[in-house]
Structures are given as C-alpha cells and as structure tokens.
Design a protein around this nucleic acid. Sequence first.
DNA 1: TATTGTTATACTCTATAACTATA
DNA 2: TATAGTTATAGAGTATAACAATA
Lengths: 171, 171
Amino acid sequence: MAEQAQYEELARQLSAVGAVKRDLARILPASCPAGSAAVLALLDRHGDMRIGQLAELLAVDMSVTSRHVTHLAERGWIERSCDPADKRSRILRLTPAGRAVVDELSRRSSELLAERLSDWTDDEVGQLIGLMTRLRASFGDHRPGPRPVGVRATGPAPPPLEPTTRTPANT
Amino acid sequence: MAEQAQYEELARQLSAVGAVKRDLARILPASCPAGSAAVLALLDRHGDMRIGQLAELLAVDMSVTSRHVTHLAERGWIERSCDPADKRSRILRLTPAGRAVVDELSRRSSELLAERLSDWTDDEVGQLIGLMTRLRASFGDHRPGPRPVGVRATGPAPPPLEPTTRTPANT
DNA sequence: TATTGTTATACTCTATAACTATA
DNA sequence: TATAGTTATAGAGTATAACAATA
C-alpha cells in the first residue's frame, strides 16, 4: 500500500502520458488513425478473433471496435468472414495488405521510440512495460462486472460535488 | 537500447493505458471533465501561473488550455487576473471553491487507485511513477523544436504508405 | 430471452487557423 | 514583427441506446 501523495502523483502521470501517445500517433498515416492501428496490432499479435474479443482486448465498447473494424475492412486491411459455428459472429483476419501496414507502422513506432528512449537500458524499458501491464491488469479485472459485493474499499464517503459518475452516460 | 519487439510491446501498453485513464475519469463529476481536472491539479501543485505555462505542463496546445480554463473560470473555481507586468497575460489562481474541488477529486482518485492497486507495494508504485515521469521527459524534450539537425535516428526509410505525419493537420 | 454486431447520436479532447491586444 | 490569449472549426475517440439477426 502506498500513500495518498503517491497516488495523486500517479494520477497526474497517467493524465500526462497522453502527450506521449499523441506524439506516437503523429507518425501514423491519415488513412490509419490510432484506434485502427491498435486493432491491426492486436490482430497481428493474437491472430484471428471476433469483434467481441477485440473489444475486450482494447478495453473499449464493442460499438467503438465495430467502427474501427469497418474502417479497416473498407481499406482491405482486414477481412470479416462469418463464423460457421455462430452466424451472429464474424471472424476478423488480417489480409496480406493489412499485414504489410502493421509491419510498416510497427517499424515506424519502434524507430521513434528507439530515438526518444536512446538513453534507456533494455532493462528499464522492460520494467516500464512490466509495470504498465500490471497496472492494466489491476484495473481490467474490475472493469466489467459490478465488483465483489460488500467490499467498497474505504467507506461510503458522501460526494459533495455531484452523483459521482461521469461518462457520456449521465451527461 | 532495447530491441524492436520491446518497443512494439511498449507501444501497445501505451495505447492500452487509455482504459485505465477512462476508468479514473468515471469518478469525476459531470461539471469537471478530465481536462479541467488536470488543470486544477496542476494549479494546485505548481501554484499560480499563466495560460502558456499551463499549456506547457499539460503538453497541449494553448487553445485547448484556454478552453479548459474558461470552463473552470465560469464555475468560479479559478480566477483570471491580469498580469500588471504584461497586459497580454493573465495569471491563473485557484479560488477557495476550486481548492475544495481539487481536494475532493484527489481524494476520490486516490481512493480508487488505493483500491485497484491494493496489492502493489509502495516501492512498486514509486517505480511506475518514476518510469512514467522519465518517459514524459524523454519525449517532452523533443516535442517543440525541430530536433537537432542531422540526427534522423535510423535512416531515411521512404514511407510506403503516405507522407508520414498524421494529426488534424494534414487531414 | 440473451447475445453478437451495427448504427445513430452526443460529448470530450485535441489541433489548426484566423483574430485581438499587447510588446 | 512577435507574443499571449481567444474563438471558430474540424477530426478522432468514446459511450449509450435502439435495432437486427441469431442462439
């Protein structure tokens, strides 16, 4: 367990990491925005899968994933074939053209990272990857279902501002 | 220096960290979206400052910062006074009401982080903060100006896709 | 009735460009 | 002429809700 000041600092760093992501996104071609590039990378890494699985891996709503997938399919970078076992589902697969794009984008982003992190050791990069992976896991496990009943962490804590939730939902 | 596979993995983790940020954003009140909350946190941490400095710290365009600031000023959470030394500038300052909001939001996000990272040691959280801070620094130093001429990292590498840049700019 | 995807709609965040007012 | 900030406009990413087809 860490102290409150540390958590606040972590929150600040998380909000600031967006700048790094935007920097990385600038090397993408106009035809393949970041969301689509993420889909390509996951298909390349994990192989063929359904939209739902992809949405799970992206930690994003299926409707969002569907849009990205449509974008890629329109460009011929992925194929949406029907799953014979379940006709509601569609199996996504990288096309050769799609694979070429993934390779090129991977090359570009690796090149940029290599330049920016030229003074990082292999071990340091590995540590950051490991901690970020674990961070995602610590959050991801709680995302979908309503957390284990009766836990509620610290306490009720009546919110002085507003209901509490904030997402396109209650807007 | 690390290997290409490691850079690719880091890129994936960076793109995936958005899910954690969204999770954290869900605890914000509708009246204070993430962008505004970031402004409040920076003013709380660094004290009074000008819009330009804030934009620098946020690593975001000044026009974006200006919007967030307007949002906060309209709610009475910050004050925009004129800088007597330079009448073009405006000094930003948290109001007591603003400080109360910052405190509440910090409390909430710390609470959520404490819950999610309950099995992390103080040291591990510190390591993640340190590495993310360094990551930002490694990128931030290169962002504004055109990098030191004649460096170009790996090589020319003719982009098979499109020009290369991708941002609202060339869209 | 429940699940897989799709589409329509709305909102936040961001950048560029044009503009005002100072320096 | 250059800088600080504002505003208008546009694009990307996301979520919710309503809907289609299939289990």
